[in-house]
């Protein structure tokens, strides 16, 4: 083997190649395709029609806004339920918290569709009608581990010295929480929001199953369009959603620069 080739093969740089190839093929190329489809019509000619269609259709915008609303409600519920759980986890001793974290993560091992179908079965069994309530329940149930884990992480890494310092300076337990613990765990909450909010905007399977297809989310609309071979319009909707998520994440990363510990899965 000539020397140059062996250097190339065994140098560290060479190892990057498979990943670059993978990323190019399965991430960059599809994104370019989305952009391409979004700005063309069925014949392949350049057009803004797909976007103007979207903004012209009050139903599409309504679904978009409704999806964001559902995502916000889900995220808020996840915070309200997940934060205390993360707090309890971070307070319990090591062995017990490991088990508890495991219990929270365990449902994630089951496929999301199976879990959602099981939720339907449960609602049927309890004779609770499916619909918006079931949808939110299903979303929270599916995404809450993504909220708990990053918050748990930041809480657990938090120096207990800060809590003691606050107590020492005269803060009652609730003041310690509001003035020290909560602000210091903000990076974890932000990570959690990213982990929950973004995927909830684009879900469609949960909505379909838990509302018997009565409630449409934005993800559902995209999926329907693609399924019905309306690739260009579907791509435009995807692009709108991508931009929206992109904007929220830029908004979030601003915050993260100050807190050196994001502490999440992100």
């Amino acid at each position: 083997m000539n020397r140059k080739l062996s250097v190339l093969l065994f140098s560290r740089k060479a190892w990057v190649f498979p990943y670059v190839a993978f990323a190019a093929l399965f991430i960059v190329l599809p994104l370019l395709l989305i952009v391409g489809f979004a700005f063309t019509d069925e014949t392949g000619a350049f057009t803004f029609e797909n976007f103007s269609n979207f903004f012209a259709q009050s139903e599409a915008i309504h679904i978009f806004v409704y999806s964001i609303g559902i995502a916000i409600v889900t995220t808020v519920f996840c915070i309200l339920l997940g934060y205390p759980a993360a707090w309890i986890l971070s307070q319990s001793d090591m062995n017990r918290s490991q088990t508890l974290v495991m219990l929270f993560i365990l449902p994630m091992w089951v496929n999301i569709l199976v879990r959602t179908l099981a939720t339907v079965a449960l609602f049927d069994f309890l004779r609770i009608p499916l619909g918006e309530g079931a949808l939110i329940f299903g979303m929270v149930y599916n995404f809450i581990p993504f909220m708990i884990y990053p918050i748990y992480n930041t809480l657990q890494k938090m120096d207990k010295g800060y809590i003691e310092a606050a107590q020492d300076l005269g803060a009652a337990p609730w003041q310690v929480f509001l003035k020290v613990v909560l602000p210091l765990s903000l990076p974890g909450i932000v990570s959690g929001i990213m982990m929950v909010f973004m995927p909830t905007i684009s879900t469609f399977a949960i909505a379909e199953i838990l509302t018997l297809n009565n409630i449409k989310l934005f993800g559902t609309t995209i999926q329907e369009n693609i399924n019905n071979s309306m690739w260009n319009y579907g791509a435009a909707l995807s692009l709108i959603m991508l931009l929206f998520i992109g904007i929220t994440s830029i908004f979030n990363s601003d915050d993260k620069e100050h807190s050196n510990e994001g502490g999440g899965l992100w």
Binding site: A165, Q167, D168, L169, G170, A171, Q175, P183
Partner: peptide, 29 residues
């Protein structure tokens, strides 16, 4: 409990609140 005692502590590792600036750290109590 500690918050009701007439004592204050200077901690070994300072334990200054990282989310507050100097002024707000001192103003905490």
């Amino acid at each position: 409990p500690p918050h009701k005692r007439p004592v204050n502590t200077v901690f070994q590792r300072y334990a200054l609140f990282p989310h507050l600036n100097v002024y707000d750290n001192i103003a905490f109590g």
